[in-house]
Simulated scan of single mutants.
Amino acid sequence: MTWTPNDTDPTKDTHVLGRMSEHLAERYAGTFTPEMIERYVFESYATLGRTARVRTYLAAIATRFADDRLRALAQSMGSIAKDNPQVLFVCVQNAGRSQMVAALLAEVSGGRVEVRSAGSLPAGEIQPLAVELLKEHNISLEDAFPKPLTDDVVRAADYVITMGCGDTCPIYPGKQYLDWDVADPQDMTLDEARGIYAGIEHRVTELWERIQSS
């Protein structure tokens, strides 16, 4: 999905968001009320809209974000079974580091881990450098987008991996918290970023081995 700038009036998305809320209400029938789902959808839209640099697909992206949050909340409540371990990666902007390691873990695990990422102060778009770096390893960030850290995804996680976001992530018992010292590639050249990829790959591989042995 490619985002392109336009001058979309956010109020035009109201009907679309309402229709998408109805679809999610069918998916989560018996778990969440339609009113709660609609609130999640519109709240997610407003939150992403504060930082999004483009708005062409904002309604669809917001619905994906709301759906993932609702799924995480349902998992934490036990309403949806957690068939795979849940890993959450958190950095500041959710535009580079956390997006890269999340995509890499999904690739390394072969989809046997449910991976999420978030940012304490999310950026408006994914760093082009992160996209290019992963493309070299045949890993796509095409559908990725920066999103804020929310309580529901933390509650669902079994592992929470932070990278330079300080104390913004809430602490809940029964979860494994790790802090990784990973440089932010934002101001690096592609050659410099390649230098941190090996370290990222090593950390992700070790994490996957740790998950498998637990």
Rank of each mutant, 00 (worst) to 15 (best):
G199N: 07
R112H: 14
P85H: 04
T189M: 08
G166C: 08
K135G: 15
S79T: 00
F89M: 10
Q93T: 13
F65L: 11
S120E: 09
V113I: 08
K175I: 02
I171M: 09
R64D: 13
G166T: 02
A198C: 03
E192I: 04
L105Y: 13
I200Y: 06
A157T: 02
Y177W: 10
A95N: 10
T189Q: 07
P146L: 06
N84R: 12
I126W: 01
C169Q: 11
S120I: 15
D83N: 07
V92K: 05
E136R: 15
P185Q: 08
V108D: 04
P173T: 11
Y197T: 12
M100V: 07
D152H: 10
Q127V: 09
R64V: 00
G78M: 10
R64N: 14
L73F: 00
H137V: 13
P185I: 07
A72C: 12
V115H: 04
R71L: 15
A157Y: 02
T168V: 15
C91Q: 10
D83P: 00
T150N: 14
D152G: 00
R64S: 10
P173R: 13
I196Y: 04
R71N: 04
D191C: 02
N94S: 12
F65G: 00
A144D: 11
K82R: 15
S109A: 15
D167R: 09
H137L: 01
R71S: 14
A106N: 12
L129V: 09
T63P: 01
L133S: 09
T162A: 03
C169T: 15
P148C: 12
G174N: 03
V87T: 03
A81F: 00
P185W: 06
R97Q: 05
V90W: 05
Q75R: 10
E142W: 01
N138T: 12
E132M: 12
L190P: 09
G166S: 05
V113W: 01
Q99D: 00
K82P: 00
M100S: 07
Y159A: 01
N84A: 07
E192Y: 07
D181A: 14
A183F: 01
Y177K: 12
G124F: 08
Y197E: 07
A74S: 14
A72W: 03
A81I: 06
Q176V: 15
P128F: 13
L129N: 09
G119R: 08
T150I: 15
V92D: 06
V90A: 04
S79H: 12
P128N: 09
V182K: 08
Q127A: 15
V101R: 06
T150F: 00
S140I: 02
A81P: 00
Q176N: 12
A74R: 09
K147I: 04
E136H: 12
